[in-house]
Design a protein around this nucleic acid. Structure first.
Lengths: 250, 250
DNA sequence: TTTTTATAATTGTCTAGCAAATTAACAATT
DNA sequence: AATTGTTAATTTGCTAGACAATTATAAAAA
C-alpha cells in the first residue's frame, strides 16, 4: 500500500476522485482482499485533503461494499473480498429498484425468468450433485408443512430455485439467477398465500426434484414451463382483481 | 417532501441509517425522480445530526447513482431517475469486479454466455424489427473496415451483441445481457487483435445477421455455438501461451 | 499465571467556518 | 425600455480541530 502512486487531484469533486482511484486500485489488483488502507488521517495527508473529505470517499466505497471498517488499533478500512453473496445483494438491490419502478412488464419478467430457469434445469439435470439434491429435498420438506407462514414459504421457494441455479455447477449463471430470483421475490410474495396455490407449487417442485434426480432434462423443462404459466395466470388474475377494485373506488 | 416522517436514528453508523431511510423512500416512491431533498443543513436538523454526517449519507447515495447535487440557490440534492443505462453501468462495474477477481472460470463464463446468447438469438429471430436489423447491419459495415483499431472493433462487437439482446424485445433479458457482455469486454479485448481473427468473427456476424433476417432461429443458434467455440479455443491458446511464457521466466 | 487496568490507536461524530458556484435582484448604462 | 454589470444570498464543497466510542496491546496487580 505504501508504494501506490496516488495522483494529485483537481479541486473539484474530491471525494469522488479519491474513491475512484482507490476503486481502480482494487480492480487492478494493487489492493487485494483484506488489505488494510492507511488510516483516515494518513490518507488525508497523502491526498492532501481533509479527513471529512477522505471519509466521504470511504463512504462511497462502503456503499458499494468494497470496504468495511473497524475501530480501534488494528482497526481501519479493509478491502472486502466481495463474496459473491454480498455482491449479489447490492446487485439485487439495484434490480429490485428497477422492478419496483416498473421498468419491466410482468410479461417480460416472466419470459426472462422462464428462459433462464430452463437453462438452469437443463444444466442441473446433467450436473447436479448429491449435495444439490439433498438441498432441494430439504426445502421440499420445509414447504410441505401446512403451518408454514406465507413469508417462510416464499423464502423457501426462493431457496429452492437458488439451489437449482447452484446445481448447474456454473457460478456465473448461478450469480445471474440469484439476482433475478431475489429481485422477483416481492412479486412472488403476492402469491403463495392461499393453501391451495401452495399445494400446486409444492407439487411442481416435487416433480422437478424427481426429474433432476433421474437426470431427465425434458421432464424438468416441462415442469418449469408449467410453473411459470401457472404463476403468470395467477399474476394476471391478481392484477385484474386489483384493477377492478380500483375501478370500484371511483 | 416536508411531510415525510423520518425516524430518529440510533447513535451508530448514522450515515448508513440515514442513507438507507432515504433510499427506502425512493424505492417506495415517496421520493420521485427529480424531487429535491432539503438542504444539507435542513436534513442535519431533521435527523438531529451534524452536516458532515448528512454529507456522508448523501455520498453513499451518490455512489449508487441515486442522487446528483448542484450548488447555488436552486441547487441541492436531486433524486435521479436511474435510467436503465446508468444502472446497467453500476451493475456492469460490479460484475467486472467479479470477473476481474477471477471468481468465475473462463469456461463458466463462456458457457453462461453461450446459453444466454442462444436465448437471445432465438427470441430475436422471431421478434426483431426492421430497426433492429438496421442497427445490426450498421455495425456489420463498421466491422468490415480493415483500418479499424482493435479497440474500435471490440466496441463495435459489443454493440452488435447488445443489439441482438435488444432485438429480443424483452427489456429484462436485454438488461441482463448488457451486463454480461459489458463485463466480458476486457476479456474479449485480448482477442480481436489480428486481422485474420477479426475476419472470422465478422464472417460469423454476417451469417448471424442473415439468419435473423430470414427469421431462421436454428441457423442463428448454430452460428452462436460456432462463435463461442471459436472464442473459447482462442482463449485457451492465449492462456497456454501466457502460461508458457511465465514458465520460461523461472 | 490470570485478571484487571491503563494506554494508545483508530474510526465516528460534532462544531464552526471559509471557499466556490450559481441564481436572483437591482442598479447603471446605452 | 432593454441590456449589461454588480452585488447579495443561498447552497454545496472543503478545511480545521476537537471529543467520544471502541478495541487491541501492554503493563500492573492479584
Amino acid at each position: 500500500m505504501n508504494n501506490i502512486g496516488f495522483e494529485p487531484v483537481r479541486r473539484h469533486d474530491l471525494s469522488k476522485q479519491i474513491a475512484d482511484q482507490i476503486r481502480q486500485a482494487i480492480i487492478e489488483g494493487t489492493l487485494k482482499a483484506d488489505d488494510r488502507l492507511p488510516t483516515e488521517e494518513d490518507l488525508a495527508q497523502r491526498f492532501d485533503v481533509s479527513r471529512p473529505t477522505i471519509r466521504e470517499a470511504l463512504k462511497r466505497l462502503a456503499a458499494q461494499n468494497l470496504i468495511r471498517t473497524r475501530r480501534g488499533p488494528t482497526g481501519g478500512s479493509f478491502i472486502t473480498n466481495p463474496s459473491m453473496l454480498e455482491l449479489s445483494d447490492t446487485l439485487t438491490g439495484l434490480t429490485t429498484l428497477l422492478v419496483g419502478m416498473e421498468r419491466f412488464s410482468t410479461q417480460e419478467i416472466n419470459q426472462a425468468r422462464q428462459e433462464l430457469e430452463l437453462i438452469c434445469c437443463r444444466l442441473a439435470a446433467t450436473q447436479c450433485t448429491r449435495e444439490d439434491l439433498l438441498q432441494l429435498g430439504q426445502e421440499l420438506q420445509v414447504q410441505q408443512d401446512p403451518a408454514l407462514s406465507p413469508e417462510a414459504f416464499c423464502a423457501s421457494d426462493v431457496r429452492f430455485h437458488r439451489a437449482i441455479a447452484n446445481a448447474t455447477g456454473n457460478h456465473m449463471l448461478a450469480f445471474i439467477m440469484h439476482t433475478v430470483i431475489e429481485a422477483l421475490q416481492p412479486v412472488a410474495n403476492m402469491l403463495a398465500s392461499r393453501f391451495q396455490e401452495r399445494q400446486v407449487i409444492v407439487d411442481q417442485h416435487q416433480r422437478l426434484y424427481e426429474a433432476l434426480e433421474q437426470r431427465d432434462a425434458q421432464a424438468a423443462e416441462k415442469v418449469i414451463i408449467e410453473q411459470i404459466a401457472y404463476l403468470s395466470s395467477r399474476h394476471e388474475q391478481a392484477q385484474a382483481r386489483r384493477a377492478a377494485r380500483e375501478d370500484g373506488d371511483h
